[in-house]
Design a protein around this nucleic acid. Structure first.
Length: 482
RNA sequence: CGCGGGGUAGAGCAUUGGUAGCUCGUCAGGCUCAUAACCUGAAGGCAGCCGGUUCGAUUCCGGCCUCCGCAACCA
């Protein structure tokens, strides 16, 4: 079976992990677990992007050296593994010596193939923002944020990447569904059709030393994007471990919509420039807003993954991401919405169904052998419902896959209501038991379906079915105090 | 004419070229195995506005209005 390589974006470590990244990495985790379930060997990569001007400035402001600064943040991202029950098997840091060597090698190859050149160019620089501004960002020739400042013109010599050479190849590439959803593929295609310009891929080390040195030119360091994207290669052992590279590449890449151009245009042309195969698939997530607004410390509507886990538990967060956050569009997330979903779908829905079923089965003396569950699972996997669920996961629509599960939950509640085993047991105990076995089998199916999405809940349900007992409710209701 | 997303029941969201669905909330009823849970039913929408294509559009096309991202803590 074909090995499967999936990676998240490497988050930039200038702040704590935010909910949007939790969404991305939970999705990647669900897909990774799903592929393992199917029997694929899986390489699931994540990590941290640690170079660049913003990090350099922040570290300098705090009077610590950049490496110490990023070490601290990188740890904060590593703890997500336990926090969100993630199963990544590689965590790459762009300050790893191996990655730095890979980035240098990548640069050298692209340079040798003739796609890097040096030129002077002038940039417009806003002192207020301390950032370069492109013409498209300006309003009436001024920075819209600091209209009282005059823009400074700075002449600087940098290395450029000959992206313009790859327009035709990119348009050819977009004939296959490289990018999900389709609307994003159309967007990047339109962007490339408008014309691709060469872009700067280095910075003067004298102004910004925190980056990978440009080979044979100590005066320049690589622009952070150029080095960060190469991490998708260095993570799997490129360049020296060709066996590993050929085994895993190309990758499925998850990213946010702000990364569309970088990952599906810029990165693809970089790969072509290095003579490497294009990515397999790029999945574009929407953004998370809270109460209709971008999460912001000053507004106070920031929801941290850790807060949600503390309040509702890991699997509730994974559930919310899977089923209540739109797979591709922007979504609004608030603690109240999470609480509503928790109560409606997990407490009243899944948790209560497991509870009522196990209780009846235990009370009425239903017993089921281990062989029985194996058989149930085999039948399930041959069913059309399972095919539907699998189809959704194969096309990265975790939401529709989860809908299959919750449709089952509703059907089972109705089934119990209609068959009334709790009445039937008084006159026809065998009939009541048979009804319960039907529900128990379906619950086993739900546990199977939940394996990639809510692994620990899946295991708890399976354990309850094996022992026909339930120590405590899976998801006790969270009531709002009024 | 910079790029992109949205405007569908009180709220949040799905969906579809042919009587518009779900969750929460509200009202009424049922059940009692269960986490005051579960089931049934009801009320509540001219699917932002205007025009076009069509036998038929909420769905396709054009225009308009309007909200929101593309700077900060950015996936």
């Amino acid at each position: 079976m074909k090995p499967f390589y999936i990676t998240t974006t490497l988050p930039y470590v200038n702040s704590d992990p935010h909910f949007g990244f939790a969404v991305e990495i939970i999705r990647a985790d669900i897909i990774a677990r799903w592929k393992r379930e199917l029997g694929h060997e899986v390489f699931f990569n994540t990590g941290t992007d640690e170079h660049g001007i913003k990090i350099y400035r922040k570290a300098t402001e705090q009077g610590i050296d950049p490496q110490t600064y990023v070490d601290g943040f990188s740890k904060q991202f590593r703890v997500l593994r336990e926090l969100l029950d993630l199963s990544w098997n590689n965590f790459v840091r762009t300050t790893d010596p191996h990655h730095i060597a890979a980035a240098e090698k990548f640069w050298t190859i692209v340079n040798e193939r003739g796609y890097i050149y040096k030129k002077f160019y002038s940039i417009k620089y806003c002192v207020g923002c301390e950032l370069e501004k492109t013409d498209s960002e300006l309003v009436d020739g001024k920075c819209p944020i600091h209209p009282t400042y005059e823009l400074e013109l700075i002449n600087e010599e940098n290395y450029f990447f000959k992206a313009s050479a790859f327009q035709a190849q990119l348009l050819e590439l977009y004939k296959r569904p490289l990018v999900l959803p389709d609307s994003r593929l159309g967007e990047v295609r339109a962007f490339v059709e408008r014309g691709v310009e060469d872009f700067s891929i280095s910075r003067l080390a004298s102004k910004m030393p925190w980056g990978v040195p440009v080979p044979n030119d100590p005066a320049q360091v690589m622009y952070v994007w150029f080095d960060a994207l190469v991490s998708y290669l260095s993570a799997i052992g490129w360049p020296e471990n060709t066996t590993s590279f050929e085994k895993w590449w190309p990758a499925v890449q998850y990213c946010g919509k702000d990364n569309l151009r970088q990952q599906s245009a810029m990165w693809q042309s970089m790969l072509a420039a290095a003579g490497l195969p294009f990515s397999e698939k790029i999945i574009i997530n929407g953004f998370i807003v809270s109460d209709g607004k971008k999460m912001s410390k000053s507004i106070g509507n920031v929801i941290s993954p850790a807060d949600v886990v503390a309040e509702f538990g890991v699997d509730a967060v994974r559930y919310y991401v899977a089923r209540r956050v739109s797979p591709f569009e922007d979504s609004d997330v608030t603690m109240d919405k999470i609480r509503d979903a928790f109560n409606a779908d997990l407490a009243n829905g899944l948790g209560n169904l497991v509870s009522r079923t196990i209780k009846m089965a235990a009370t009425y003396g239903v017993t089921v052998s281990r062989e029985h569950w194996a058989e149930v699972e085999m039948n399930l996997k041959a069913s059309s419902a399972y095919a539907e669920y699998a189809g959704h996961l194969d096309s990265y629509n975790i939401q529709l896959a989860s809908d299959v599960i919750w449709n089952d939950i509703t059907k089972l509640d109705i089934f119990i209501q209609e068959k009334k085993p709790f009445i039937k047991v008084k006159t026809d105990p065998e009939g009541a038991k048979a009804d319960l076995v039907y529900v128990l089998d379906a619950l086993w199916g739900i546990a199977v379906y939940l394996r990639p999405i809510m692994p620990s809940t899946s295991e708890k349900i399976a354990e309850s079915l094996r022992t026909m007992s339930l120590a405590e409710g899976l998801f006790p209701r969270k009531d709002v105090k009024k």
